[in-house]
Design a binder for these strands. Sequence first.
DNA 1: GGCTCGACGCTACG
DNA 2: CGTAGCGTCG
Length: 775
Amino acid sequence: MVHTNTASECPKEMIALKMAQTEKLLPGNQNSVSMDSSSVDMKQLSTHAGSKGRTQHRQTSKPSKRENICSIGSSSSDAPTAVKKRVVPTFHRKASGLKEKTKNKPEKLSQMSIEQVMGTTHRVSGALVQAAKTVTSMSPSELAKLQEIISESSEMLMMLTYTDGSTQLREPNEPRKRASASLHEEGVANSVLVAIQRKAAKKEYMFVSFPLAGLGKENASEATRNVLLEILQSSTRKVCFDAQELMHAIIINYSLDPQSGCNKWVIMDPKIACWLLDPDNPPVTFSGMLKTFVTGKYNDQAPNNHLTHLELLGLVMGDLTNKLQRKNLWELFINLEVPLIPILAGMEVQGIQVNQKMLISYSNILKDEIKDVEKQCYKEAGHPFQITSHIQLRQVLFVELKLDEQCPGQKLARTNVQNLKSTSETVLHKLIDLHPLPELVLTHRQLVKLKSTYLDGLSDYVSGGYIHTSWDQTSAASGRLQSSNPNIQNIPKQPLQLHKDANGSVVNETTASSTTPATTLWMREPFYSHDGWSFFAADFQSIELRILAHLSQDAVLLKVFNDAGSTDIFVQLTCEWLGLNLDDVKTADRERTKRIVYSVIYGVGAERLAETLNDTKENAKAFTKSFLVKFKGVNTFAQRCISECQRHGHVKTIFHRHRLISNISSQNFHVRSHAERQAVNFVIQGSAADICKLAMIHIMKVLSEKNTVRARLLVQIHDELLFEVHDEDINEVKGILKTVMESTPTLGESICQLKVPLPVSLSYGKTWGHLKQMV
DNA sequence: GGCTCGACGCTACG
DNA sequence: CGTAGCGTCG
């Protein structure tokens, strides 16, 4: 097991998460991986032929860089030098020459050395040209020997090769293309190259390649597939730079079940290790990582071939392992981040069903509405202008209409960099009573945003009725997951109300009378579940505030969360704060409390809070002050974060995730203040992220154990998990999700026992638009 | 004149 | 606070 494999390298004071102590997270149990293609939704799989987004930047190859790259197995000796938008599937070619040699070897397997069998054992030091053996060219006896070698190996280094001849360990390619250029691309993964290190002879590797591109069913022989799965499930330490991408390619090309087929794969990823060490500067490419994180010996210009890169990969991971252990990050790495990799890969392949026709029809509705609003804007301004141009809008509002001069008491915000008069939402709100234009512009902005980002933008990503988002583990310094291409985590939750008033002109909800006919659009409505299945959402209620209660140990906050009662937390807080009765709390008070609370979490200043509250700076200050007086622990907690950061140069979350913040001692007030807010915010946001990830791993583990329950994880939105569940299993899943997620705090108890409960609220429905709350 | 790029402003989500 | 992504502008 990996755990035992690596335990000897771990410091004694290592605290393991409870999760990892159970064997299920760890590899070695072959039977638990479903190879049954009948369990795979073929309709969905057929839509995943291409992986977009993450492959965008490797379309082009640099022939000059590849001059001394040796030919590996089925890869690049005759790779196209020209850029190809659509990659023609390259069927795995026979490993020329090599195959002949090994085929002619004597038959007595037991008497042969590995070299004799495989002809590929190789000492990497030195620039020897060396080829890997392609698995598909092996005879049954050779495969048997290979399996034996795998079972006796001490380490396996893995990487993808692409049809253009580059690899995962390639030099950085052309500058990244714009997101729009990445749409509808074909996947270009060509093969999986594995260097197997033998236990007996540490310096000897055996190189094997598994074809991916053009892998038809007829070619994916059971034997070949089983060998690759054996590697992935083996307890041997495995290393890959960007393991998520590797897993993604394997799941697709070998038609594995994206949810259950891979969740026990354990691969060390140096990319993630580097990000844990310095989350603000995550490596993008392998060579970039070497430059930033690896000192001395590896910086030398190594021979540019696949095999030396693989050896380098192993050395670097060894180095990083030591670094992680020294920084007390190893448990976070091995128990949280590494188990997450196959889950994310599975989510990418799984995708989510989208009704593209609905996206288009909504878009057309908005197109007309936008035109109407445009006309009204021109009328109110007295002439046509480009409403989306801040420069022109500034001219109209502040030079022609001089609206800013009509509100002398108010201080209107300025833009960040150029210090010009801002046209932001908060500014426009303040001008609303002076002239019809500001509100029209706000409406226009809202409609344009919804149309361009969430209707047209999403529509571009629909392929075969599905959207396959990319999940990025290393792009957020706080430890949160991030989705992109498209970003599925910021699709509006609130519906858009469209009203037509008596004149037929469009107005938004704030001014429309309740009797006018209304159209209601939910941007999440086009996302729908399969027949016989439903969406099922589970989200942690106000997790960041609960984390704050725990971390600050503030007596009042702790009491609020632990005295239970189903009353809304912000209503309760408002009571505590203003000394009101529960029934006397008005919605406005509740909203105000919520904003103040999160402002404190985010560490914003009085000016910013005044803006969000639409109140004066003095009142905002007073609010914040009375809040901090009521919850004295919060302020001491913030100060503790700041001084910890000053002492150590970094702050830590409850699971030891850290962030280096050097500006904490800056002489510049603004720079230092920003750093202080970052420090406080990171501890809370990062701790919440830790727990959400732990919950995610835990729930996927439990679901995969109950193989009768049909549930798939589709999306993670920080504190919320969206599943698709078979209708017959809804009640069972409801019970599992609630129990398992709410037990998350106990999982990490060896690291940290949370002093507050983390209740989960559940909802379900046939579309993502408006889910029904469950009780 | 069209095209690409980075900087900037704004606003969804948490 | 911190993500992604759309739009304008020079």
